[in-house]
Design a binder for these strands. Structure first.
Lengths: 227, 227
DNA sequence: AGTTTCAGTGTACGCACGTTCACTGAAAGG
DNA sequence: CCTTTCAGTGAACGTGCGTACACTGAAACT
């Protein structure tokens, strides 16, 4: 059941309006539609095989175009991969924005972080799965892109942490802490992706506890180290 | 430069000794040699492409046998993958044995754990890389095998932790803690694998700090929770 | 000495792959 | 209205793949 998209002439645009405002209809946005269809198809097909096992012909068939038409949109599968990395981290950043909404007590931050993470992983399953897979995946270009994004992420979390009442932390220690937290969150995401729905409460409870342990640990570790 | 192994008749065994003790020479151990060569070749080739991108013909060429001969040793690439999982976790368990050698103060446990991990990851680079890749890899069979091994691992660590002076911890809390620790160690391993040698001291220092944070956190979290 | 076993051979098959190239025909634009 | 642009077409290519099948010849067994 291909996702057919290439209806050559989908609709005649009424001239009266179309000429006034350049409604960006038809040609350019038909291209955009196809591009989206390719990204969606790739995201779906990658679920089984990873980007490495994705073939241009599979994608084309799924989208409903001829193989060669793929090149009108991407130079290579790697470029497709990079576009998916960008898109996937887009939804991850959207998630962070949700977490930042209101930052009350520390306990509440932990609670909302974990529940927002859990919700987003399920909502954007395909994106999170893609990231998890390609983080250690076959294509060096894509793999490195994913890792760079995570490092960026880690840095952002570090500056966020600096705003919390954990005074006198060196930037290095903040990086170490945020590296630990990001790592745990990645692990949790992967567990959520792999788990059956009924195990979800256990996982979120565990993630909450772990995040709390880490924070409590960081605070006490610091005070015990700089006595 | 194939790893040629198929010298049909490598050596005539001197009858005098060979007949006394069944030295298990030639046929059965020639098979074993080839099997090993296949495993080694697969481990090397997988480094670039992942198990998903590994072809039976590549392996055969690398080993120096004809493609069809592969089937004398494995039913499928998946079976090869499972053998590699087993082997890779073998070296991981060897590592743990090293860590357990002498368990003095808590600070020393942390130090030796991290340095042993760091050393082993570099010594058994191929094995650790394989595990990291296939943990989210393309083949469900192999992927699940890796995850099952990690769960086993986590359980073992939990029982180890139970022997430490952290009394009155519920088994659930121990599982949560060991899940956190195993997760951090996986993340650290992946960072070591991806890092250049000169960044290694930073990474081990970070890992040490994180492990300490986690332990301090776990202890304080527990005492604050069960006040 | 005669028979069986079996790791490795060699050919041949059909299939999916990426990429090339010249093409078509509707949309965009002067 | 007439020209240009360009997303999608369709045939053709060379390559590497997994697997089938009948085989060989030395090692192992009786």
């Amino acid at each position: 059941m291909p996702n057919t998209v290439h209806i050559r002439t989908p609709k005649r645009v009424p001239d009266n309006l179309a000429t006034l405002i350049p409604v960006n209809v038809s040609r350019s946005d038909q291209k955009e539609r196809t591009r989206r269809a390719i990204l969606d198809a790739a995201l779906r097909l990658t679920e089984d095989t990873g980007l490495a096992g994705l073939s241009l012909r599979q994608v084309a068939k799924e989208v409903g175009i001829v193989p060669t038409a793929f090149y009108r949109h991407f130079d290579s599968i790697d470029q497709l991969g990079l576009a998916l990395v960008e898109e996937s981290f887009g939804s991850l950043r959207a998630m962070i924005r949700d977490v930042r909404q209101g930052s009350p007590s520390l306990g509440q931050i932990v609670d909302s972080s974990v529940s927002v993470l859990s919700q987003h992983v399920r909502d954007e399953r395909a994106h999170f799965g893609f990231i998890a897979r390609e983080k250690s995946g076959g294509s060096p270009v894509v793999r490195d892109a994913v890792r760079r994004e995570f490092q960026l992420f880690e840095r952002e979390l570090a500056t966020d942490l600096a705003r919390l009442p954990m005074e006198h932390w060196s930037t290095e220690d903040l990086r170490i802490l945020s590296n630990l937290i990001v790592g745990s969150m990645i692990a949790t995401s992967e567990e959520i992706l792999a788990a059956e729905p009924r195990d979800l409460p256990d996982i979120t409870h565990r993630a909450r506890t772990q995040l709390l342990m880490v924070i409590v640990g960081a605070l006490n570790w610091k005070s015990s180290a700089s006595h």
